[in-house]
């Protein structure tokens, strides 16, 4: 696809923009900003990837993966402001998810240690882990607030913080994993997954494309499990102070 034909696709943007203006949706500014950002970010990434792919050093691959993790942590952090030290817990959860899933694929030699495979797949795992972390933290904070009486009853019966919060954490894990599990059930029936679409457009045989897509779906499923369980395990103590009381940030209902 030439740059000229790519620029013709701006017609899509124009349609969205026109609708927004016409209906006074008030998101015109956001549309422009996101189109500009997406274009610039992807173009830059494209050139960086091209350069990393041609260079022989693995150092750049590792560096790319680490940068992606850092950006993901920074993004997910906002969801769990009330939880002290949430950023390093996110760092561990997202890194662990990425390293375990990609590490497994490398170990059993499903993918080779080349930037063409490692970087995009790591990005997928990191990205999914980020979305799941945000969901989990969101759920955890609101569940804790809504169930604070239950938590206090358990504490006053002599529960330790992990005992008092376990049912809340489990619910947060379950609700954050449901979208991942549910979307697997309909995948391919409603829409073809993005990666598969991209591969088919690029001329890949659909059956081969499906194999890669399945690999990715399974990896995403385990990424979801690893992320939410790791985060759940690490955050359950951080909702309490040293006197085993629920932190004040969680003692009032959300406005």
């Amino acid at each position: 696809m030439s740059l000229l034909s790519l620029s013709l696709t701006l017609a899509f943007v124009a349609v969205a923009f026109a609708v927004a203006l016409w209906q006074r949706l008030g998101i015109e500014r956001d549309i422009v900003v996101s189109v500009v950002r997406a274009t610039i970010q992807l173009l830059i990434v494209g050139y960086i990837l091209k350069w990393v792919f041609t260079s022989k050093s693995s150092l750049y691959t590792v560096l790319m993966v680490l940068i992606m993790i850092a950006v993901a942590v920074e993004n997910a952090r906002r969801r769990g402001r009330q939880i002290p030290g949430v950023w390093w817990r996110l760092t561990i959860a997202i890194s662990l998810t990425t390293f375990v899933t990609i590490g497994f694929l490398l170990l059993v030699r499903i993918i080779p240690w080349t930037p063409q495979y490692v970087i995009p797949l790591s990005g997928l795992m990191t990205g999914n882990s980020m979305v799941l972390s945000s969901l989990f933290l969101n759920n955890l904070v609101s569940e804790t607030k809504n169930r604070r009486e239950e938590v206090n009853v358990l504490l006053s019966l002599g529960a330790t913080p992990p005992q008092a919060i376990r049912h809340v954490v489990n619910r947060a894990i379950r609700t954050s994993m449901i979208p991942t599990v549910d979307s697997m059930k309909t995948t391919g029936l409603v829409q073809l997954p993005g990666i598969m679409t991209g591969q088919i457009l690029a001329g890949q045989d659909p059956v081969t494309a499906v194999r890669y897509q399945l690999l990715i779906l399974f990896a995403i499923l385990s990424a979801a499990a690893i992320t939410s369980i790791t985060l759940g395990y690490m955050t359950k103590n951080s909702l309490f102070n040293r006197h085993m009381q629920l932190l004040q940030a969680f003692t009032h209902r959300e406005a």
Partner: peptide
């Protein structure tokens, strides 16, 4: 603390 809360029961 768990021992304290077992010794000092509370009802709401």
């Amino acid at each position: 603390i768990p021992k304290l809360r077992q010794t000092v029961g509370m009802a709401f």
